[in-house]
Amino acid sequence: MKFSVLQFPGSNSDQDCVHAVLALGHQAEYLWHRQTSVGDCEAILIPGGFSYGDYLRAGAVARHSPILSAVIEFARAGGLVLGICNGFQILCEAGLLPGALVRNRGRTFRCEHVFLRAENRTSPFTCAVPEARTLKIPIAHGEGCYVAEPSTIADLERHGQVLWRYTDADGRVSDEANPNGSLANIAGIGNREANVAGLMPHPERACEPLAGSDDGKYWLESMIRTVTASQPNGA
């Protein structure tokens, strides 16, 4: 399966994303922000970093880049798009996901491992997660506090669009386990159609035991399982 990884000036997790895909035995190529087509890829990863220096707002400029128009078209046609960290901020700015990410409630940049619970194990981004498994994944962000109107949060909950929540090591949701003040401990969400998702933690940095955890592989494995299952020959 072939992934494309976007590259903006200021992206810094693009190589981690490509490395993670290659480590799982699949293909990955970069898409530069000035490109106007996503080519023949089967899924897109929007990596973390500080695209365009986070000028104006995180993701605000990247959202209007040429490649994003192609990504929006790809997503509208049902293609799988996962935004990680700055990629999540870009997807919210683009309106592909509801809500926004603002400065962490505790005012500090958080760089550490956290625990997540996959809330909906039927999505293309969570279907490979073993039941009842708490996922150990690193975070690194200063603006990861997820906010949205109360009605939007209620809609997300009702339609199973909250995909990951911050928990403690035993999978319990608590204020102590919430690193940034996100509403309802939300670490990541999907769109109603379930083909676009975003999260603040970095699964691509946790795909090998050497990295301190390999739970991140479940994100890519879920996407791979979804795409290969949709192909007529099951290849």
């Binding site: 603002v102 400065r103 962490n104 409630r105 505790g106 005012r107 506090c145 906010v147 003040g181």
Partner: peptide, 14 residues
């Protein structure tokens, strides 16, 4: 300006 309902940690710090 940040909306009134949105937490403003920068403002709090100031």
């Amino acid at each position: 300006t940040p909306k009134a309902a949105i937490l403003d940690p920068q403002g709090q710090q100031v």
